[in-house]
Design a protein around this nucleic acid. Structure first.
Lengths: 344, 344
DNA sequence: CCTCCGGATTGAAAGGTTTCACAAATCTGG
DNA sequence: CCAGATTTGTGAAACCTTTCAATCCGGAGG
């Protein structure tokens, strides 16, 4: 007389149950799962049938506890709503797929508190490694995590020390090619729109801009700074209004925007004010997000190898576990994509 | 004589080590972690110091194995590069934060194989629940997972049966208000641009469009179908060219696009062909993504309560574990955001 | 017929935590 | 000063898997 099991859930089956149902030992079930070649075809078939019948789902916690290794990577991204980071993540997925790993995405949304919470949990989960675009690349927490044994790779930021691997893009060079292009188009008063005082990346892009001016024999006074608080479309609109308000004698004829969102905002203001782009105002953006090409006036922009950035970061992470590992800092070179917004 | 521990890593400390260092029992360490009020302040302090000194990091696998519960939710999203889904995810994060849970994001990128791989792993991890916008809402796998005990909530799709909770937006109504607005603006030949033959959502939006026409006493022949293969900016550009190629006598004066990307593409083609929006062509998009407002001609669009959608989905998921749970299908109502692209 | 060999299978230990019944210590108030 | 209640702390079992040394078995070689 067996117990009715209609009402109560019959508690999920474990390997023990599978072993019993198949009439083999626990060890054999494990072998079917982890070393199928060590097991005779007949037994394997029996075990696999039993698994299917019992709807067996392997318990990853137990597996990981015993085996020590985890099979997940995580990317803690700075801003999940920025297409740049989702493209980077796509590159990581490519690498993770190739290594039979899962990639989990976490969005810190520029909040240190959230970032810390995620890092804490990931460390507790003993993930195989953490990819991160940190709110603050020099926060000590990252170093501590790495020292405690979870590999960390910093993405699209360059940490001060050399405590981790990192991948980044040469922002100085990016700024340089953007402004060199504008100079070649005949501009010699150029607006720089962005928050270069607070964000390292933006500072670098501006340095590149100055370098291009110098190379053309133009002093730093040929760069007109319009400082924003962040890098949103609204910031771009605001900067556009300030720009339009300048007397014609000093108003720049071109603008280099610290990212494409800002550039789109500027473009919109120009359209509202009936300023023709590129005739009255040439615009260069940065990042080459999908919408840059789709804008009313397609945007010239500095493209970063986003997907490649992500893939390389993940590969560096996987390489961390190899024997004589040395931390590497990979720097990619951006390229200029010229479109209508700068071509007269 | 103790062993040198300079070179070799000293194996991460566990609760046992903490207990020894603090001179208390293992159970007490566990109490400090899980029920701090059951422990005297003095002992707690001792234990906490020991934890800090040993750099103790709790092992989540072991915790979960023993406790049975996990503290993570996962959202398997259809397209990580679509701002719509990242906004939905942000809403879920709000809810997860409130419940002291982590939200992990997985990107299936429209690939069933990837979706299945993620689902398998999540089930093995025994996550507390799965939120998903599936490639195919009627795939049997979802039902199986739910039956095996991992709650599943379907987001922004309406599965045929009632096997899960779901949250969605009323797409028929969305299509209706979009086209009603165009009719009110005096249009009576309206293009519908999208892939309504393959995607349920788009079919619904088109049905709404027809309903609005009927309400105005106009037959279905007043809707001109321009069918696309997907819903990208490029599809919109292509449709725009087809539209422009129509003889003026039959060419619609307004277009209802199945999403904002398509609308942006159409807008771009109009700009290229020197067609004025909205005078020569009024445009309504769908989703109201951030870039809709930022377009050269700000786009009228149907806004879905994205963040709310995500938050509600997560809340439904958390409610699944309550005693007498019944699956619920929540449907939100979209609203029309009118901007310059339809206002003459 | 015996020994030895190799492949297939087994059994038990181990991994780090949570939980719970129980013991010890401290407090309450009569 | 004591019985009983309350607060702290303890010890061992349990969670489910992986791993590895040991055993089993059938057949090849002598």
């Amino acid at each position: 007389m067996t117990v009715q099991e209609s009402g109560a859930e019959p508690r999920a089956a474990g390997m023990k149950d599978v072993a019993a149902a198949a009439g083999v030992s626990l060890g054999t079930v494990s072998n079917v799962l982890n070393r199928p070649d060590r097991v005779s075809p007949a037994t394997r078939a029996k075990v696999e049938t039993a698994m299917a019948e019992l709807r067996f789902v392997r318990n990853e916690s137990a597996r990981q506890l015993r085996a020590g290794r985890s099979r997940v990577l995580a990317y803690v991204m700075l801003d999940g709503s920025n297409p740049f980071f989702t493209d980077v993540a796509a590159g990581m997925e490519d690498a993770a797929d190739a290594g039979d790993l899962s990639l989990f995405l976490c969005n810190s949304a520029h909040q240190s508190a959230r970032e810390e919470a995620y890092l804490g949990r990931l460390e507790q989960q003993r993930v195989q490694g953490i990819l991160i675009t940190p709110v603050d690349p020099d926060a000590p927490l990252l170093g501590e995590i790495a020292r405690r044994g979870t590999p960390v790779v910093v993405v699209d930021r360059t940490p001060g020390g050399t405590a981790h691997c990192s991948v980044a893009v040469d922002d100085v060079y990016g700024g340089e090619i953007a402004v060199r292009h504008l100079i070649e188009q005949g501009h010699d008063r150029i607006a720089f729109i962005g928050n270069h005082t607070t964000v390292g990346q933006v500072r670098d892009r501006r340095l590149g801009a100055l370098r291009a001016l110098r190379a053309a024999g133009l002093g730093p006074d040929h760069l007109v700074d319009l400082t924003t608080t962040a890098l949103t479309v609204a910031d771009g609109r605001g900067a556009g209004e300030r720009l339009a308000g300048l007397p014609a004698s000093v108003r720049p004829t071109a603008a280099f925007c610290a990212n494409d969102l800002v550039a789109l905002g500027l473009l919109q203001t120009c359209a509202n004010l009936r300023m023709n782009v590129p005739r009255d105002m040439a615009i260069v953006g940065y990042d080459d997000i999908e919408f840059a090409a789709a804008a009313a006036v397609p945007l010239t922009s500095v493209r970063q190898p986003r997907r490649r950035l992500g893939r390389t970061a993940a590969e560096l992470l996987l390489a961390e576990s190899e024997p004589g590992h040395e931390h590497r800092q990979v720097v990619f070179t951006p390229e200029l994509v010229v479109r209508a917004s700068t071509l007269r």
